[in-house]
Simulated scan of single mutants.
Amino acid sequence: MNEIKILIVEDEESIRKLIHKILAKEGMMVYQAQNGKEALDMINKYTFDLIILDILMDDMSGYDIAQHIRSEDLMLPIIFLSGKREEEDIVKGFDIGADSYITKPFSPSILCAQVKSQIKRRRGASPENLDPSIIKHGPFKFNLKTYKFYKNDIEIKLSSKETKIIKFFMQHPNHVFSKEELYQNVWHNISSDDNSIMVYIKYLRNKIEDVPNEPKYIKTVWGIGYEFSV
């Protein structure tokens, strides 16, 4: 776990120090922010491997910070650590883009295990995926520098729009998106065109699915939209 940089965003100093102590023992470099402004300043200044994020803070909520991170397309694993235990709060956290949600009071050993798991999942087990520009899920790999997409290490040629869709899917695996959400995030247009979405989903299935008529990876969630399942 050497050279791994973690940012703790938490307004309670005692909790920050506890988490710092836990993760520093694992050889991680741990940075601390006591509010949202400090957190955003650090995110703009440094490259982190993971963020541990409180929700209730004075200047802005952890939800706001997470939304900012996702809007900037920073593929940082986010772990919410919060006293908000209601189901709707947890669901909201995952909807915004959290990779994990741990409620207070928390087990230090479980938090540490979650941090290790999220970083391993993000980077992948092979030395190749220590490169943060590589996203890997299942048999697929996307290079954020070259915008090339691979299945089982074989490059799949994609059009510009197909590349943008698969990039979005690779950045948000196992998450259901409506056609409107896909259109807004890929086409960057408020009004949606269902036909365009359907056509490009069909194109992608023909290229990446083993059996396009029985999709295993780009699944239709009836009445809602699509899920990139890996």
Rank of each mutant, 00 (worst) to 15 (best):
E12N: 15
L144Y: 10
K17N: 07
I135Y: 01
L81R: 01
M198E: 10
K179V: 12
M60A: 09
S191L: 14
K167E: 11
S117P: 03
E10Y: 11
G138T: 09
K141G: 06
E12G: 07
S196T: 14
I90D: 01
G124S: 05
A66H: 07
L204F: 04
K120I: 11
R205V: 07
D64S: 15
L40I: 15
F48S: 03
N35D: 13
H137W: 08
I43V: 06
S100C: 14
I19A: 01
S82D: 03
F94C: 12
I208Q: 05
Y150W: 12
I190V: 10
V91P: 07
P139R: 14
P212T: 07
G124W: 00
E180S: 14
R205A: 06
G138V: 08
S160W: 05
K148T: 14
D89K: 08
E13W: 02
I102P: 08
L158H: 04
K136I: 03
F168M: 07
V30W: 02
G124D: 05
P105A: 06
N2M: 13
I8M: 10
A24F: 03
Y101I: 10
I165Q: 03
S126Q: 12
E181D: 07
E13I: 09
N206V: 00
F80M: 08
K207Q: 08
A125I: 14
E227Q: 15
K202A: 11
K84V: 06
P215V: 10
I65E: 00
D153G: 05
K148I: 10
R123C: 00
H175W: 11
A24C: 03
Q67I: 04
Y217H: 14
E180K: 15
P132G: 05
K161A: 02
K92Q: 12
R70C: 03
R123Q: 06
P77A: 09
P108I: 04
D95L: 12
K164I: 00
K141Y: 03
G225K: 13
D73Y: 10
I8D: 00
I69M: 11
A66Q: 04
M60D: 01
A98F: 05
S107W: 04
L18G: 01
A66R: 09
K151G: 06
W187F: 13
Q171V: 07
Q118W: 04
P105I: 08
N129D: 04
